[in-house]
């Protein structure tokens, strides 16, 4: 059970990082294809729900940890911050990504890019907290 939960938690975390990678490509000036944006948005939704859901399940399942441990609360706060930043980044990126081949060449709003990079930092911080588990 533990290993299955861990695998699903890792898979969800991979989905989050994949979203960050796709949006980073857009932010670096890659072709903003609407289908790629849709893939990124679906991965963000799956990753967001999966990391928090399976993460809390793991914390409840394992005797070593409690849901109110400092590093778990820090991770939940980072997840919430990352989710809101991700929502703002997606809202900013969506109007400039257009369907099919030719679209998506308009300038990227600076605020959307900023939200994306801040979201990327939040995801990186989450990974650091998961591995170092400060206070555990």
């Amino acid at each position: 059970m533990y290993h299955t939960l861990l695998f699903l938690h890792l898979l969800a975390a991979l989905a989050l990082v994949a979203t960050v990678v796709i949006f980073s490509a857009f932010a670096f000036g890659a072709h903003r294809d609407a289908r790629l944006l849709a893939v990124a948005n679906v991965l963000w939704a799956i990753g967001g729900l999966g990391t928090i859901g399976f993460g809390i399940w793991l914390a409840l399942y394992l005797d070593n940890y409690e849901i109110y441990d400092g590093w778990i609360i820090a991770a939940i706060v980072l997840w919430a911050i990352g989710s809101e930043l991700g929502r703002r980044a997606q809202a900013g990126f969506t109007p400039v990504a257009t369907g099919g081949e030719g679209g998506g060449e308009t300038a990227l709003p600076g605020e959307a890019a900023l939200m994306h990079w801040l979201r990327s930092l939040a995801v990186l911080a989450l990974l650091v907290v998961m591995i170092y588990k400060p206070g555990a």
């Binding site: 991979l14 990082v17 994949a18 960050v20 990678v21 796709i22 490509a25 790629l36 893939v39 991965l43």
Partner: peptide
């Protein structure tokens, strides 16, 4: 990053 860039 490896798996994510492969997805991209």
């Amino acid at each position: 990053l490896l798996v994510s860039t492969l997805i991209l």
